[in-house]
Design a protein around this nucleic acid. Structure first.
Lengths: 197, 197
DNA sequence: TATAAAACAGACGGACTGGTCGGTCAATTT
DNA sequence: AAATTGACCGACCAGTCCGTCTGTTTTATA
């Protein structure tokens, strides 16, 4: 019973790493098994099939990662634009090797799988929706506090911000050039500054 | 000799469609063969292996598609911002079903494969570099013509524009929601407007 | 038309892959 | 103590999939 949580979590964590490196379609069940030391029967005891394992990675890992990195910071933010810029600056100008070489795990999976499998698409879309509405809310609150221009539409701008962050991280990964990432971050921050009152 | 071009081109075109739908790793050689009516021996006469077929799709198809859609319009443009907005408006507010459901073929492949295989990454990066420098050049020329703000750095802004376009198309695909695409396009156009003199 | 080279055909190899299935064992329940 | 539960095991299977190999046909050239 206690072991169950361990095995299940172990599988999800390792599956995430493999998916992050090789994509979902490039991930091999046997490799996940080898690297965790879990037997095949155990995996198929916890998950119906390979897809369900992937879904669990999205639902139970990527969701939390996104919340921690991009959503939590807003919870107690005074000025949403300051907070956004701080987060972006932190990730874009001091990127880990992981980020430059492998990009954003959510975006990678999204671009690979949302065309191929509807189960992935819906789950990933849920995360993006959450992220968008978190930023939209923060912007709206920022407007009433007088931090954000009144003439912008929070929803639309939030959608654009999320899309741009994903796009910039993707561009950084493709080029493997830290300057591309920095340039993107720089322009993105300029844009965010333009939203101030 | 004439047949050779036909067979080769036929394979590349069909491989592109399969890759666009299923990703490269999800593409099956046998399916490409069935759908073209080409025999396996013929394919392996023209291409060393599956990767080489994929590389040919990038070099010979995606490159031209990108040039036609995103680069050619600038060749004779007076005001680069007008031209950019026109192109974006055209694609984002009147998107084909293809674009909403399957996104940008270049970006899909980029996000899937640039982590997995260096051959793909380099080829794809080449296309993005071309695209970026095309926009950067146009912006710089636009500055000397007095259409574009003097205080922006063309290179950085071009990098951001390309990344944002890719990000917005990806966001549209994930959500399968035409409004997401439109909202993104709207905000992107606002940003481009802010670059005018 | 003879000859060589290029293009094409498709059966086959065999490593690999996702998934199955009968069985074990320790912990709970009755 | 007997019965039951459920996590876990790992050999095995059926099917997949890339790539090879042995020809045959077509085309170019002399």
């Amino acid at each position: 019973m206690t072991q169950m949580q361990n095995t299940r979590e172990k599988l999800i964590k390792k599956a995430f790493q493999e998916i992050y490196r090789n994509g979902f379609q490039g991930t091999r069940i046997d490799i996940v098994l080898n690297k965790t030391g879990v037997a095949k029967g155990a995996l198929y005891h916890h998950f119906k099939d390979k897809n369900e394992l992937g879904y669990a990675v999205v639902d139970e890992l990527l969701t939390n990662m996104t919340i921690q990195t991009w959503i939590q910071p807003f919870e107690n933010a005074q000025n949403p634009i300051d907070e956004l810029i701080a987060t972006i600056d932190n990730i874009f100008t001091k990127p880990t090797k992981q980020i430059i070489q492998t990009g954003c795990p959510l975006n990678n999976l999204a671009q690979e799988m949302s065309t191929v499998d509807e189960g992935f698409r819906k789950r990933i879309d849920k995360i993006y929706s959450l992220w968008r509405s978190s930023i939209a809310d923060a912007l709206t609150k920022g407007q009433s506090k007088g931090f954000v221009r009144e003439d912008i539409e929070s929803d639309k701008v939030a959608t654009f911000i999320v899309a741009s962050i994903a796009g910039c991280l993707g561009a950084g990964k493709n080029s493997r050039d830290i300057n591309v990432l920095k340039d993107c971050g720089h322009s993105l921050i300029n844009y965010l500054d333009s939203l101030r009152c």
